[in-house]
């Protein structure tokens, strides 16, 4: 079974047409991979479907815009993966 990171990297590669080898756990989805907000919604849909969760994108965006959290906290892939894992765990609990 693929790890969460492998699944997410595969989704990003396919959805945003980014070579898989460019995508690492340290990649920032926006700054390093150049994913715009619309493309990120496509990625969120694929992640929601793949993991059976609902990424709270609106909440995250609001927190970043209000300066309550740095964008890295959500959009660096290792952090995004950790949040997906937490959402999956919460759903299964």
């Amino acid at each position: 079974m693929a790890s969460t990171f492998e699944t997410v990297a595969g989704i990003i590669s396919e959805t945003a047409d980014i070579p898989r080898e460019q995508i690492t756990p340290e990649s920032h989805a926006i700054e390093d991979l150049g994913i715009d907000s619309l493309a990120f919604l496509d990625i969120a849909f694929a992640i929601d479907k793949a993991f059976g969760i609902k990424l709270p994108l609106e909440q995250w965006t609001q927190e970043v815009n209000e300066g309550k959290a740095p964008a890295e906290e959500y959009f660096v892939l290792k952090n995004l993966v950790a949040r997906i894992d937490a959402l999956v765990a919460a759903k299964q609990a």
Binding site: L41, F45, D48, K49, K54, P56, E58, T61
Partner: peptide, 9 residues
């Protein structure tokens, strides 16, 4: 089909 956060399908 799906109600996401800030989007719908």
């Amino acid at each position: 089909e799906h109600e996401g956060s800030g989007y719908a399908v």
